[in-house]
Every structure is written in C-alpha cells, then in structure tokens.
C-alpha cells in the first residue's frame, strides 16, 4: 500500500504499524509513532492496522536545549 512516512511516499507491503517500524529497521529502538494524527504506544503497534495513503511520522529524541 501507499504510505506517507516522514513526508515521503513509500510503497510498502505492510499491515500494521509494527510492520512499518520493522521495515525501516527501527524495531527495538526508542521510536515514537504517529499514524493518521494519532500517537500510538508501542504496545498498540502490532494490533493497529495502517490504511492506504496514511500519514505516518516516525520520530525520536535528538540533542536539544
């Protein structure tokens, strides 16, 4: 399906948020996910399906003041 991840379009063979996280090699890393405007805790990733054309944000903590 088509997904917009961090502002870029991707054609991915995925079903859940967990699949998206794994696809980008981020499993086990301190990642936060927003999908379709809603923030999902990591426990919800495996049971939350993504929809075609959904906007997904994968974010993390970086250095800042």
């Amino acid at each position: 399906m088509n997904l917009i991840v961090n502002g870029n379009e991707y054609q991915l063979d995925v079903v859940t948020i967990q699949d998206v996280v794994v696809h980008f090699g981020l499993a086990g890393k301190p990642v936060v996910v927003e999908a379709g405007g809603t923030v999902y805790a990591s426990e919800q990733w495996a049971t939350t399906a993504v929809q075609d054309h959904m906007r997904i944000e994968l974010v993390h903590f970086v250095g800042g003041g």
Binding site: V5, N6, F24, L26, L58, V62, G64, G65
Partner: peptide, 19 residues
C-alpha cells in the same frame, strides 16, 4: 536533561537516538 523531538532520518537509521 533537555532534548528535542525530530523525524528519524529513514535513509540512515544508523544515525541513532541520543538516548
């Protein structure tokens, strides 16, 4: 300690989190 929240660079995920 303060931090910022930013998009992960999906082209280079080795550029890892500060944590």
């Amino acid at each position: 300690l303060t931090f910022a929240i930013r998009r992960i660079n999906l082209e280079n995920t080795e550029d890892d989190s500060i944590l």
